[in-house]
Design a protein around this nucleic acid. Sequence first.
DNA 1: AAACAATTAAACAGTTTGTTTATTTATTTA
DNA 2: TAAATAAATAAACAAACTGTTTAATTGTTT
Lengths: 195, 195
Amino acid sequence: MKPREDIQNIYQTALAVFSEYGYQKATMEDIAGRLGMTKGNLYLYVKNKKDLYRKTVANALLCWQSRVLEAVGAETDVREKFRIMCAKAVQYLSEDNLLRNLLVRDPEIFPMFADRDPYAGINRNSVALIRSILQQGIDEGVFRPIDPDRISEVIFMIYKMFIIRMYIRAEDDRLHAMFEDTVDLCTRGLFSENA
Amino acid sequence: MKPREDIQNIYQTALAVFSEYGYQKATMEDIAGRLGMTKGNLYLYVKNKKDLYRKTVANALLCWQSRVLEAVGAETDVREKFRIMCAKAVQYLSEDNLLRNLLVRDPEIFPMFADRDPYAGINRNSVALIRSILQQGIDEGVFRPIDPDRISEVIFMIYKMFIIRMYIRAEDDRLHAMFEDTVDLCTRGLFSENA
DNA sequence: AAACAATTAAACAGTTTGTTTATTTATTTA
DNA sequence: TAAATAAATAAACAAACTGTTTAATTGTTT
């Protein structure tokens, strides 16, 4: 007979608790209580608190990422793919109060300058998505023949900078406008074609 | 030489911490840290944690109440006084994220049906304000000669019901409209004067 | 009814917290 | 400038809490 509790539900519930209280103040008893079980039972589903936290965060980042992937996949025009990717990445985060609040509480999840990125694997997937769109654009002759490896890292760095600014001050609408400006600048360039 | 820390600042800082984490998870070390002192020092300013919480809440309720009192005092027409009192009471709470969040975490602060009200003294002041406006209106012949003692309790009960509904679901705009409907119903009655 | 699975309740070691107090640092006074 | 006083920190302490494990109980399946 399989376990009665779904691990996805555990991650979602854990996310809510970690988001509200942060890693330190959230207790295994809090999470177990929200799940309607005792903390002893929770240990049958998860290794320990730190592992639960790490997996909870990873799960949330993956969900966010896969939503973007899905939105992009629905497009055919490579330029639209790029624009959709940029727009949805930001939109889906702004809609996810739990993940955003968690990022506020634990900025190390998504560091700007840290030596080591705890979720590097997941972020590499994001870079890979960017790279695949750039490559497709170049192959179709719709994008200029830039270095897709390097430029995908650059785009991810810029994107990350905006994400960090946005979740710190979610209500600053100027940031959204500036982000759109940046997408426009990257896609259409600065120079007028007639110059 | 007087204490270096202002008790009002302590209450305001404590409110922020209790609001964010709730009484249980908030620690004296959290509060002291926000104040830039050690928890040992904090005990020179406050008796103990429970006492600090009680006074912090009382202080927040008094601030809210005195802002309403001040807005009402600026009016001369008794009908406007009544409308302003109703409107500002709700508006000031909706603007106070810290107090509202604290009420969400600890509904016993402002109970609907509890046997005992922990802040009865402060709430009696609110009832007294309502009563004084009703009495002035009756004295001036502008209000119908209702029982000011009883009706002030009734108005406070209705007001409390709305407050509780509002801080539980702060984003439900229908409640604001319904509250205004209620104020209108109370002030102008249901029957048309021409009937 | 027995076996197995899932969960709870209890236990435990380590950590944290509320509170107090000894010590140190800062300020004032003579 | 030294002594006295005030304010704060650091350390201590008892109690409570927490992460984790395990014995006992309850639920389900065979």
